[in-house]
Design a protein around this nucleic acid. Structure first.
Lengths: 214, 214
DNA sequence: TCGTATTTTGACCATATGGTCAACAATTTG
DNA sequence: CAAATTGTTGACCATATGGTCAAAATACGA
């Protein structure tokens, strides 16, 4: 077996990385149950036995892929800055998520699959680390509300909206391409424009909305 | 085998219905590959062989479930009425979709799973029937834009936003409950309020936005 | 180059799963 | 009630799949 205690060999590093990156594609396309070790092995250009020499089970591969992908996927939220301008910060966050959706659709689908199946692996993580991160960002949103920079509402729903709309372009790409034939570059540009126009306007602080309402 | 040509017997009707409704739960929870005929049989309280007496394959069950669920799931969009008030119509549509997400989360997850896996079954349907329906509704949105009832943007993205945000509450329910401990009734009320406040304001026609922008 | 540690794999095993079938049970029909 | 039709299931089959293992191949340090 590959020594866990010593340093990783060159070959170990190469193969483990290759397995993980290949597995992201496979798992995101077919889900955990729908993916087989043989598929992964073939896609990575090695034998099944060899894959299982580096990871002792399919589940271990899946965990490695999740961990590897998780941090990148959630990074943009970390950057939401309490000191910045509310609307600009939100706009930046939306754009960062949209970009991720475009450049890493597999990561998005991997999580969508995992959550849909009831988050059997990352359930605990959601309740602890992610919850802590989200609570912090919710507090920032509340601060902005008190300062009148954005309207008042239950702040977590803004996060849900941003997540769902941006990830939709990765997770439901097949449906989108069936309904809209424009090239992906236009699609994503239009998505960004739309969210910009509608959301930023809709979020603007209550001092304006009172006037508009009349 | 159950006669396809003649009329359905009482027992056929009962059992086929039971299988389909049970399968919705199973398929939506574990996906197609993750669900087994045995699971379905057990959940429906019959033997595997008996289930396969009514549907000759797992795939046939899946198709029946999809078909059964599809129409209910898309009904609200049909109701979007060109003659009505733009914002009210959109608001009604959002509320209808949110309600479906609350009352039929399994249907939502079934589709999410199907689309995530690349829509192997309903792909053709998406490109024909759903596309036609969507094209018609997009035309309505464009009309509203020309009349200045709502802002101007690529209209299909509004549909994507409504679908993604409303279905998110069903598809990502596990994540949501990990991050927000409020009871589901409050959650959905807040979601509705939030979408109301932000979206309807953000969508309002360009005659207002010019003023706000300055 | 030699010996050791690492890497690779074909063959194999146990289990899970979709699906079939013949025999038996219940229901319907005349 | 008897025959015919419909319904039910345990046993079985073929295949797929996760995982093991011993033996062969390769890489690597002294």
């Amino acid at each position: 077996m590959p020594s866990t205690d010593r340093k990783r060999t060159r070959i170990q590093a190469e193969n483990e990385d290759r397995i993980v990156s290949t597995s992201l594609d496979v798992f995101s396309k077919y889900g955990y149950r729908g993916s087989t070790v043989d598929q992964i092995a073939t896609a990575a250009g090695m034998s099944k036995a060899n894959v299982l020499y580096y990871f002792k089970s399919k589940n271990d591969i899946y965990l490695a892929v999740l961990e590897e992908t998780l941090k990148d996927w959630l990074n943009p939220l970390t950057d939401l800055n309490a000191e910045g301008d509310a609307l600009l910060e939100i706009q930046r966050y939306i754009q960062a998520k949209l970009k991720l959706s475009r450049t890493s659709p597999a990561a998005s689908r991997l999580f969508a699959n995992e959550i849909l199946q009831g988050a059997p692996m990352i359930g605990p993580y959601l309740k602890t680390e992610l919850k802590a991160l989200v609570d912090g960002k919710v507090a920032i949103l509340e601060k902005w509300m008190k300062q009148g920079e954005i309207k008042t509402f239950e702040p977590i729903h803004l996060l849900f909206l941003i997540w769902s709309t941006t990830q939709h372009y990765a997770d439901f790409a097949i449906q989108i391409s069936a309904l809209d034939s424009s090239p992906k570059s236009k699609l994503h540009k239009d998505a960004e424009k739309f969210l910009d126009i509608v959301l930023l306007e809709g979020l603007k602080g209550p001092q304006y909305s009172g006037v508009i309402g009349q």
